[in-house]
Design a protein around this nucleic acid. Structure first.
Length: 526
RNA sequence: GCGCCAGUAGCUCAGCAGGAUAGAGCAACGGACUUCUAAUCCGUAGGCCAGAGGUUCGAAUCCUCUCUGGCGCACCA
């Protein structure tokens, strides 16, 4: 709906300025000023050398579309009121054709890489936010018209793996776990499943496989699934990273100094050059990360790649972007979503977790005690950039007042009303007109908001943040509850009942679609 | 020392490519079920938008500085 208004207003702006209009801000005005408003006249004032109210008046006069009933001005704002009849037609048509919730295919493949925790221990609640945001974002982008591939990158080689193998071996041999090894209690569970005669190298491979199975199970309980687990071990050991070095060599982007091979990342906006191959011959993580992105863009040809990282990796963004530019990738093809760190508290006291020390609260422990929908929603109702305090004890206690139930309850009400209608043998089909007589204030507000569903999806997709969709759903739920509470749906004359059921039908459809898109369940009854 | 993210109601957070009276949820207080699920609704109260300057017709929003908190600045992973 907002997209449609932008087009209409854009035409009016072009008519006045004779130029293509920029993106137009559409807002909800204070009550009494119409359905939508725009301050665009203020911006045009300088350009046209005329005062904003004059411009607003000219704009209002130039607006010509049946969807818009009135366009008034007030102190430079243009306030728009949508025509009831056109609103009805618009919703009707889009609902029946499914356009209300679907976007055209963009014919592009987007890869979303997230979680990617080292398979050296179970997922803990520190991983939860990134996991939820990544999964929901993938669903949103898919709805928005991209073909989406969800991937988990496994850092399953190198020092961490060696330490894991040594730690498991130590437990098997009844020896003390090395100081820098992994000390969690899960290590002995893993050790029980591995053959004592294996080499340390075999042990570490088997251990990480076992741990990965657990990670997959935990993600599944959070209704998160991956399309692919991409193994660094296979990428590097069975791949051909020398191709990357050849490529960089050819472009004169690497050089040797002090026995190490350096990448000229400073040429691409990074603070300094970075080492790719250490003087002892080992590859740095940066080297395999570049090769991984080389694989994403050049080998697998993803149109766009979205890396979901914890904000503690922000120092790595410049480097990664520099590397991508160096291998010829247009910068806009790589987006890094930095999910802010969650400050973990236990009854008000901060605590930190570490996989190595074995001190952490696992994701599984959390989900066993907190409804997964509630846990998911908790992370989705804040912007990814927002710092978040997460008190494990409070989260457990406060489950019942989680706003997710507010939305789910609205959905359950949309379903129960149809059950009731069936009991009362009320006739309804989805061809019934949405309007039967005068439209109430609450119905109208709900209809307008329902018509903006795709705008909420688009905003979340473009901003790469599920927050906008979750807050939209809270808004819709509020409007629905108000409507449901004030208006007796199954009372009154037949036409009225039918048209109100029609509105419930559309609301039901939108809320369910929105919850699905966030990866949250939508129970029929609560 | 340098950089990134933040500081808005008692709490958790929106609002920030400058625009109308700074919003919501929770907590508090007061109301609404003989009628479609009260996990709901209605109302009241709650604010020097961290602080100080600046730009502007207009600043929570942009710029500078200060203070506070979190996170980064490796031939670590």
């Amino acid at each position: 709906m907002i997209a449609a208004l932008k087009t209409i207003l854009g035409r009016a702006v072009s008519e006045i300025t004779g130029q293509q209009s920029p993106d137009i801000a559409i807002q909800s005005p204070p009550s009494g000023f119409g359905d939508f408003s725009t301050p665009i006249a203020f911006g045009l004032a300088k350009q046209l050398r005329q005062n904003p109210s004059k411009i607003a008046e000219r704009l209002a006069a130039a607006i010509d579309d049946p969807l818009i009933k009135t366009a008034d001005t007030e102190g430079g704002f243009v306030n728009i009121r949508v025509s009831d009849r056109e609103l009805e037609t618009w919703l009707d048509r889009q609902f029946l054709s499914k356009e209300l919730t679907t976007f055209e295919s963009k014919n592009q493949i987007v890869q979303v890489e997230f979680v990617s925790a080292n398979p050296t221990g179970p997922l803990h609640i520190g991983h939860a936010r990134g996991a939820v945001v990544g999964d929901s974002l993938a669903k949103i982008l898919s709805k928005f018209g991209y073909s989406v591939k969800k991937e988990y990158y496994l850092n399953n080689r190198g020092r961490q793996m060696r330490l894991l193998g040594e730690s498991v071996r130590a437990v098997m041999d009844g020896k003390a776990i090395p100081d820098d090894g992994y000390k969690g209690s899960y290590i002995s569970d893993v050790a029980d499943k591995i053959d004592r005669t294996d080499t340390t190298e075999q042990i570490s491979a088997k251990a990480s496989d076992i741990i990965l199975e657990g990670i997959k199970e935990d993600l599944a309980e959070f209704s998160i699934t991956m399309d692919n687990f991409f193994s660094e071990r296979e990428l590097i050991d069975n791949g051909n990273i020398s191709k990357l070095f050849d490529f960089l060599q050819q472009k004169e982007l690497i050089y040797e100094e002090g026995g190490a091979i350096w990448f000229k990342s400073s040429m691409f906006g990074d603070d300094k050059d970075r080492v790719l191959k250490k003087s002892n011959g080992d590859l740095t993580y940066f080297a395999s990360d570049i090769y991984y992105h080389y694989n994403k863009f050049i080998i697998r040809k993803f149109d766009k790649v979205i890396d979901v990282w914890g904000a503690d990796h922000h120092g790595y963004v410049g480097r990664m972007k520099a590397a991508c530019r160096a291998i010829g990738i247009a910068p806009e093809r790589l987006s890094v979503v930095l999910v802010q760190i969650v400050n973990l508290l236990r009854e008000g006291e901060p605590f930190s977790m570490s996989t190595r020390s074995g001190q952490f609260v696992t994701l599984k422990e959390l989900i066993d005690e907190v409804n997964p929908d509630a846990a998911r929603f908790l992370f989705l109702t804040r912007k990814v950039t927002s710092h978040l305090d997460f008190d494990v004890e409070i989260a457990k206690k406060q489950v019942s007042e989680n706003p997710v139930f507010y939305v789910q309850y609205a959905y359950a009400r949309t379903r129960s009303i149809f059950k009731k209608a069936l009991e009362q043998k009320v006739k309804y089909n989805n061809k019934t007109p949405l309007l039967a007589g005068d439209i109430g204030k609450l119905e109208r507000a709900l209809m307008i908001e329902l018509a903006c569903y795709k705008d909420a999806i688009a905003k979340s997709a473009l901003q790469l943040d599920p927050f906008y969709l979750s807050s939209y759903l809270l808004d819709i739920a509020k409007l629905f509850h108000q409507f449901y509470h004030e208006v007796r749906i199954l009372g009154g004359e037949k036409n009225m009942i039918s048209s109100r059921l029609r509105l419930c039908d559309i609301a039901s459809y939108i809320i369910a679609d929105g919850l699905k898109t966030l990866g949250i369940s939508h129970p029929e009854r609560m």
